[in-house]
Design a binder for these strands. Sequence first.
DNA 1: CGTCTTTAGGCAAACCTTTGCCTATGACGA
DNA 2: TCGTCATAGGCAAAGGTTTGCCTAAAGACG
Lengths: 357, 357
Amino acid sequence: MTASEKGQKARRPGAPASLATLSEHLGLSVAAISRVLNRAPAAKSIPKATQDRIFAAAAALNYRPNVLARGLRRGRSMTVGVLVPEVSEGYATLVLTGIEQGLLQAGYFYFLISHHHRDELIDRSQTMLVDRSVDGMIAVDTSLRQHPHLPTITVSCPDEHEGVTNIVLNHKRAAELAIDHLMGLGHREVAVIKGQSFSSDTESRWQAIRYAAARASLALDPKLTAQLEGDAPGHETGYFATQRLLASSARFTALFAFNDVSAIGAVRALREAGLRVPQDVSVVGFDDVQSAAFQNPGLTTVRQPLRTMGMLAAEAVVRRITAPEDHPPAKQIVVDPELVVRESTCPPPAKRPARSL
Amino acid sequence: MTASEKGQKARRPGAPASLATLSEHLGLSVAAISRVLNRAPAAKSIPKATQDRIFAAAAALNYRPNVLARGLRRGRSMTVGVLVPEVSEGYATLVLTGIEQGLLQAGYFYFLISHHHRDELIDRSQTMLVDRSVDGMIAVDTSLRQHPHLPTITVSCPDEHEGVTNIVLNHKRAAELAIDHLMGLGHREVAVIKGQSFSSDTESRWQAIRYAAARASLALDPKLTAQLEGDAPGHETGYFATQRLLASSARFTALFAFNDVSAIGAVRALREAGLRVPQDVSVVGFDDVQSAAFQNPGLTTVRQPLRTMGMLAAEAVVRRITAPEDHPPAKQIVVDPELVVRESTCPPPAKRPARSL
DNA sequence: CGTCTTTAGGCAAACCTTTGCCTATGACGA
DNA sequence: TCGTCATAGGCAAAGGTTTGCCTAAAGACG
């Protein structure tokens, strides 16, 4: 039988080669070619010589499988959806770097959506991703309201969902690192800036700080806690929170901020109030974003292994996709923080600090 | 088991509704349903009542079209590929925010790939994106070597490609803003930090600076130019470049850095050398990334409208996809910079600065 | 010679949607 | 009566891949 016997569709020169093109070219059925190219078990009955011919032709014609067709047939799109609050900000982007690396390594692509912490956008994004037939989802610092029906991994997410693995920092350890560092320097009047209410880590971090303080016999003055407000992720929030702290009558020699970005805002507010950092007030940040080291002064901070967390998330979601019922998924994967001491902390001033109001 | 399968295919309760499900449900052909749901012109012969029934059933069964099947049939995936050097860094992420907004608005999703300026990764990414059958591409600060065969928009890209629209800053204007600002303050000894050789803007920016300097009769001492080195995008590069400037024998009262991130590194290097910013050396950055305002001192910088550039790119690529031969695409879209004066610039010291070596 | 197994692959359904072309019925005018 | 036209949809191919099941020939074995 000649290859041309079948309703020969002339291959337009521009069009990419499909299995049909190869089939026509080789005089073999598409089925055989597909099996060989995919190294399917059923291809073992096909002699080496034929297999070589097939591979050679695929290379010669520059055959690339059509992922849409393949995804349709297999029910796998090799794509996961990634939900982040914001793409232009330190925390999520560092996690994202890890996610990207982990996913690409495994051959997955990802759709990125940023939801700016807006609930209805989160909901919509979730269904849009399902509609796009992603194979799984990773949500970073995101509060999922709909229970996901897809393999899902969360990073620092507040709410628990059946079957969802959450990748979290060891908050207890993190709080201890910061509090013990400040106590060790001699600080006894420590102000704390909590995160925005929508932020996933806010509550657990705060619990951990209270625990660590109690353990170190440090009294936390309620007047010395402020909270980030507003949904923008910028430095301003820390700036204003610090101004509120300064406006209260209580004095403090150290400040533990919710994250580096707000710590940077805090430094500015302190400075504008005539206080030197760290001589008058020590400041500890959180996260260790890239610019933390290059602040003036260099920011002492609790480092989260953000890239690692992203990679773990990627690996976990891939595992969950490819081996769904392997073993019941872990509820949590806990990673450990690390204290990075730079220049924004030092012992408290010997005398009462200048500001005493 | 039940009467539900009378030769028809029983709809498993978990499976999503397809057109076939609706067809069975309504007693209409899939073709009719497809046409109505897509408001195809051919649906105009179908009476309103039937159309309503179809819409109602689609809503009731929560029908969502399968994007893979649709993409396969239509040859449109409603996805574009976005190439950025790095996702954890100020410049690209701001552009990305704009891109995201523009694309989602138009119903497109995007695959994000960061290539870290590695040529072979750029090449691979390009073909991977084509293999993923994206409808178009946006490349940010990326040097494309393969000529793209897809609708493509570039943002700040160095090389020209037939049919590719490049979105660029008005570098001439940008350089004038910075140089004129410094000259106006009285500076005559201005150091310049050029970008890495791989960075797209490096060459055009440098040309523009030379032009603006000449126009303002400012002599640029070759000993007072340094270049960012290494492929990491962090502050360190600016730090080391500034150290090299300081190590040379020439003195300067102002420094114009390639971008904000390197300017921040520069400030640190200057400070470590015992120089005050801005009293001894004024520093001008570029980009106006989010942290520029919250540096200490606040960074005077040339703002690029990065979000806008991203949105323009998204809109342009969508236009190119949906109306390919509308009119020949623009070679360039030029956007204008803006000078943001903060605290890192002031008149030069009256006497020779402390450092004179 | 008959039967079984291996080798070498083919057929066609399935995944789901879109779309070019077709039919059938009724109304209407000439 | 015939032709035309609008209405109301249906049929089936196409898009490219994967996969369960099949066949046909050849060799092995008894």
